[in-house]
Design a protein around this nucleic acid. Sequence first.
DNA 1: TTTTATTTGAACGCTTCCGTTCATTTTGTA
DNA 2: TACAAAATGAACGGAAGCGTTCAAATAAAA
Lengths: 213, 213
Amino acid sequence: MTNTEDNIVLERVDRPSSQRKIAKIIAAARTEFFANGFSASSIEAIAARAEVSKVTVYSWFKTKENLFGEVVKAERARMTQKFVDDSLESESLRDILLHVAENLLNFLMLEEKVRFDRILAAEVNRDPKIGKYFLDNGPRASMANLTELLQKLVDKGEIESSDPKFSAEMFHGLVMGNMDVFLRYGEKIKLTTPEKRERAKRAVDAWIRIHQK
Amino acid sequence: MTNTEDNIVLERVDRPSSQRKIAKIIAAARTEFFANGFSASSIEAIAARAEVSKVTVYSWFKTKENLFGEVVKAERARMTQKFVDDSLESESLRDILLHVAENLLNFLMLEEKVRFDRILAAEVNRDPKIGKYFLDNGPRASMANLTELLQKLVDKGEIESSDPKFSAEMFHGLVMGNMDVFLRYGEKIKLTTPEKRERAKRAVDAWIRIHQK
DNA sequence: TTTTATTTGAACGCTTCCGTTCATTTTGTA
DNA sequence: TACAAAATGAACGGAAGCGTTCAAATAAAA
């Protein structure tokens, strides 16, 4: 029953000090939820971490679920990212794709992103809506974006694809391989920038080879 | 501190009735943990579901953590699966790969597997060892298996690869695309057998194209 | 049948947590 | 300075859960 769309934080937040406290509460909640998950995090610990009284937490966020919803909402805002930027129109096919691949790689390997994924996926059982909400604003949007880009490249005659959506999936798959599995289960994979670039290069070259006429 | 290697269940389990109860407890625990995660599941609910007294649960499994560990252990046994079977020596390159791809697809799309993933990933924060344990027995083993197969194909001169490990990753990536993300976040993706076969075919063809001389 | 291992229910102590109430104090604004 | 909004600490009721104890009942093995 987590409400992720409506305003959960009450209105009339004129005072800057209140704003500051609210922000601190959300930050603290984020930390706690990320560390312990929903059930094992307590409002009291969150209040303590935010250096705020429990009553204050309850006065701004009516329930634990709402607070969690607010955290998710804030996080979505932080994490919504465009992998495909339009400033690349002039570049070559390969350079465009390399850019996208590197963006993707950087984003999906962020320690924060990985941790968030862990927590959120588990909470999908408790509230399936939260999963759909995130899919729509995250992966689904990104994939649509990527598909659109690829379609453009097809239209320009640079590559061939009978199914740009699947091509986009393959792109993602080639770039990430199964690193995401390992990351999610706690493996510490650190790639340097050149290593990421190398990986991106290999993925892009493979992808181009598949889609060459 | 979940102990996943040692025997947690006490020795001297001679009586068949005890065996039966222990099995029922693990099954009930599985259901509860899968539905609610670790923290939100209670021993009492598990005992009730297993139609057993709470004391019995505690007498066989000393703590909640141990019980969880036993569930994970049982689940690993259920889920350890070979994607590469050796009975395929005689088949063609493409047929071998198609087999593997379909096995992979079938396994990774199992509703049960997806749910297990959700729970387990969340528990990695509580106990990182559990993640490593699962990686080693699951994905890592499978990937080693696949890499070995690909190396064999390289040795036979059927394909070209300067880095079989990355080739294996690409194989995985091409087959799954980013379906796993959507699955984990609760999207209901149901593929019929022909649809899976089609997907496998496309992935394999793409992969072969990348690795052709 | 006797002996021994299991199982049970009920109760207990203890801890944690949710969410609320209230009287008091702090803070920002007019 | 006076007023109103916001924040606080302390305490509360109530629920849930962990893990234990114990005496009594049940079931298997000898």
